[in-house]
Amino acid sequence: MPATLEYYLVPNSPWTWLGHQRVRDIARAAGARLEPLPFDLGGRVFPVSGGLPLAKRAPQRQAYRLLELRRFSQHLGLPMNLQPRFFPVNGDAATRLIVAVQLNDGDERALDLAGALMQAVWVQERDIADAATLAALLAEQGLPAARLDDAQAAAVAQRIDANTERALARGVFGAPSYVLDGELFWGQDRLDFVARQLGV
């Protein structure tokens, strides 16, 4: 039976963007199932794990974050606007949309959309809190416009709640986080360890 790699993500995280395609490639190379688990990081996980929104972090931490983002962007050859026009941005609507696509179209299409949403923030400087932007991204991905309405369904909110509870149970405190065989890996810079554990 193929391994399952749990992937805890939020669509407005630069670190999730930096690791998104790599974790997909690693899972594919290993023949593992990559399970997208969009969750409520800022509203429910940060308050119980000691995390702070970016604006509330010490100036030294904020400055170093930009340095590290630049380093990793250059190292990985991934384009990134370090201070995009629409950031900070509320990712709740985008999170619901990813889950609506997952429930209706499957994990792979949800992962495609998640990547497009992150690229919209960090490369294209688009506002993923804006309904028109979300509609355009659905169209660009060849997904039904109806998913915007589907994102308001109770089942979507329930799935996000369940994902968040699962994240808390796993000890997740940031994004991206990956869990393999019950072991937590935090951050895209830990993907080499994930790959090693998967044997690729």
Score class of each variant (00 low, 15 high):
residue 45 V to N: 11
residue 54 L to I: 15
residue 116 A to Q: 12
residue 183 E to H: 12
residue 79 P to D: 05
residue 173 F to P: 00
residue 118 M to K: 09
residue 39 F to S: 04
residue 13 S to M: 04
residue 9 L to F: 12
residue 87 F to R: 07
residue 156 V to N: 02
residue 173 F to R: 04
residue 14 P to H: 08
residue 95 T to P: 01
residue 8 Y to R: 08
residue 197 Q to Y: 02
residue 168 L to V: 06
residue 81 N to D: 13
residue 103 L to P: 04
residue 107 D to S: 13
residue 7 Y to I: 03
residue 177 S to V: 07
residue 38 P to G: 07
residue 88 P to G: 05
residue 158 Q to K: 11
residue 2 P to V: 00
residue 92 D to M: 13
residue 131 A to M: 06
residue 90 N to E: 04
residue 25 D to I: 04
residue 146 A to H: 03
residue 20 H to I: 04
residue 92 D to G: 12
residue 107 D to N: 07
residue 167 A to G: 11
residue 145 A to G: 14
residue 139 A to E: 13
residue 82 L to H: 10
residue 146 A to F: 00
residue 175 A to V: 09
residue 59 P to F: 00
residue 171 G to K: 05
residue 66 L to Y: 11
residue 74 Q to M: 07
residue 68 E to T: 02
residue 153 A to C: 01
residue 133 T to W: 03
residue 138 L to C: 06
residue 84 P to W: 09
residue 77 G to D: 02
residue 66 L to W: 10
residue 185 F to T: 00
residue 129 A to G: 11
residue 29 A to M: 05
residue 161 D to W: 07
residue 97 L to E: 02
residue 42 G to Y: 13
residue 193 F to L: 15
residue 184 L to G: 02
residue 53 P to Y: 06
residue 122 W to F: 14
residue 64 Y to H: 15
residue 184 L to H: 10
residue 121 V to K: 03
residue 2 P to Y: 00
residue 94 A to M: 09
residue 107 D to I: 07
residue 31 G to P: 08
residue 118 M to Q: 15
residue 168 L to Q: 12
residue 176 P to A: 05
residue 43 G to E: 07
residue 1 M to H: 07
residue 132 A to P: 03
residue 115 G to P: 00
residue 92 D to W: 09
residue 188 Q to S: 10
residue 45 V to P: 00
residue 130 D to Q: 03
residue 64 Y to L: 09
residue 40 D to V: 01
residue 13 S to R: 10
residue 86 F to E: 00
residue 193 F to M: 14
residue 51 G to P: 00
residue 146 A to I: 00
residue 28 R to M: 04
residue 78 L to M: 14
residue 29 A to Q: 14
residue 177 S to E: 02
residue 50 G to I: 10
residue 86 F to S: 03
residue 46 F to D: 07
residue 48 V to A: 09
residue 13 S to A: 12
residue 54 L to A: 14
residue 62 Q to F: 05
